[in-house]
C-alpha cells in the first residue's frame, strides 16, 4: 500500500512538472531557454512513457523527441543568430 502511494505521488509530480515545463517552453521569450526547456520536457515525457508501460515510445521520445529535435533546434538557432548578426552589421554600414 505504502509503495503504491509513493508511485502515485511520483506520477502526479511528473504530470504536473510536464504541464509546467510545457507552459514555460511556450511562454519563454528567450529562444535558447525555450529549446533547453523543450529538451527537458522531452526527457521527462520519456519517463512518463516508461511509467505508462510503453518503453518503445519512451526510447523514441528520448532519442528523436528530446535528442535530435533539440539538436536541430539548437543548430537552427545558431544559424538564425548568425544571420541576424549579419543583417545588423549590414544595417550599421548602410546607416553610417
Amino acid at each position: 500500500m505504502e509503495e503504491i502511494s509513493i508511485l502515485l505521488l511520483f506520477d502526479v509530480l511528473v504530470g504536473l512538472t510536464l504541464v509546467w515545463l510545457a507552459w514555460q517552453t511556450l511562454s519563454s521569450l528567450d529562444l535558447f531557454r525555450a529549446i533547453v526547456l523543450f529538451i527537458a520536457f522531452g526527457l521527462l515525457m520519456a519517463l512518463a512513457w516508461v511509467r505508462l508501460n510503453a518503453p518503445d515510445v519512451a526510447l523514441a521520445e528520448a532519442t528523436i523527441g528530446a535528442g535530435l529535435t533539440g539538436a536541430l533546434f539548437l543548430s537552427a538557432l545558431a544559424q538564425l543568430s548568425a544571420s541576424t548578426k549579419r543583417k545588423d552589421e549590414e544595417n550599421k554600414i548602410e546607416n553610417s
Binding site: 521569450l29 528567450d30 529562444l31 535558447f32 538557432l77 545558431a78 538564425l80 543568430s81 541576424t84 548578426k85
Partner: peptide, 11 residues
C-alpha cells in the same frame, strides 16, 4: 550566443 527574442510577443 546572442539572445534572440520573439518580438511578436513583446506587445
Amino acid at each position: 550566443m546572442r539572445k534572440i527574442k520573439l518580438k511578436i510577443l513583446e506587445k
